[in-house]
Amino acid sequence: MRGVTEPVRVVDIRAFVCPMTWVRVKLGLEAIREGEILEVWMRGEEPLRNVPRSAKGEGHVVLLCEPAGEDHRLLIRKGS
């Protein structure tokens, strides 16, 4: 069922640097409903370190963080 097991929105932050990386992800999370999944594409050490931590800190669930070539793919389920 779309929205429960699949991402309903994709945010690509590979061209951004801190703090715009988390700003873009946060806006992406605001645009979906609780329980839905956001897919994030990121590049470099900074977002890999900070974006999952910020997502958890705001009550979301990081479902997956996997390498994809030189990038990383992150799946976040929106919390309450």
Binding site: P19, M20, V23, R24, K26, L27, E30
Partner: peptide
């Protein structure tokens, strides 16, 4: 209303839990 320019301009506000993009 939050286009790229405004996202950049208000990034520090959007980061705040009490504000965000909706706020």
């Amino acid at each position: 209303m939050l286009d790229d320019l405004r996202i950049e301009r208000y990034a520090r506000h959007i980061l705040l839990r009490e504000v965000g993009g909706v706020g």
